[in-house]
Amino acid sequence: MAVVAERRLALLGGGFSTDNDGLLDDWLLDQVRTPRPRVCFVPTASGDAPAYVEQFLAAYQSRSCEPSVLQLFRRELDDDALRTFLLSQDVVYVGGGNTANLLAVWRAHGVDRVLREAFERGTLLCGISAGANCWAEGSHTDSFGPLTHLPDGLGLLSGSVCPHYDSEAGRRASYQAAVATRVLPGGWAVEDGVGALFTDGQLTDSVTRAPQACLYRVTPDGDSSVKERALEQAMPCRLLVEAHQPTPPA
Score class of each variant (00 low, 15 high):
Ile128Pro: 01
Val179Ser: 06
Arg38Leu: 07
Arg63Cys: 03
Val105Lys: 08
Thr44Pro: 02
Arg209Cys: 08
Thr199Tyr: 04
Arg38Val: 11
Gln202Cys: 14
His164Ile: 04
Gly170Thr: 09
Cys126Ile: 05
His164Phe: 02
Gly13Arg: 00
Leu23Ser: 01
Val111Thr: 06
Ala136Asn: 06
Glu117Asp: 14
Gly127Glu: 02
Tyr52Pro: 07
Asp200Ser: 11
Leu29Met: 10
Ala180Gly: 10
Pro248Ser: 07
Pro163His: 03
Asn101Thr: 11
Arg38Lys: 14
Cys237Pro: 00
Arg229Leu: 15
His149Gly: 15
Arg83Pro: 05
Gly155Ile: 11
Arg7Ala: 04
Gln89Arg: 13
Thr148Cys: 13
Lys227Gly: 12
Asp80Ala: 13
Leu231Asn: 08
Ser46Glu: 05
Ala130Pro: 00
Pro37Met: 02
Gln55Asn: 12
Gly195Ser: 01
Leu72Glu: 06
Glu232Ser: 14
His244Tyr: 12
Ala243Cys: 12
Val91Ala: 04
Gln176Ser: 04
Phe144Asp: 11
Gly47Met: 05
Gly122Val: 04
Ala81Ser: 14
Leu77Ala: 13
Asp25Ser: 05
Ala173Phe: 06
His164Ala: 03
Gly159His: 02
Gly95Tyr: 06
Phe73Met: 12
Ala180Phe: 09
Val4Asn: 09
Ala250Pro: 12
Leu156Phe: 06
Leu147Tyr: 07
Ala49Arg: 13
Cys40Asn: 05
Gly195Trp: 00
Gly95Glu: 09
Asp142Phe: 09
Gly170Leu: 07
Asp25Arg: 03
Ser167Thr: 15
Cys162Met: 03
Tyr175Leu: 00
Ala2Gly: 10
Arg74Glu: 15
Thr141Lys: 02
Leu9Gly: 07
Thr123Glu: 03
Asp166Arg: 08
Val69Arg: 06
Asn133Lys: 08
Asp80Met: 10
Val32His: 09
Ser88Ile: 07
Val53Ala: 10
Ala100Ser: 11
Asp223Asn: 14
Thr199Pro: 03
Leu203Arg: 02
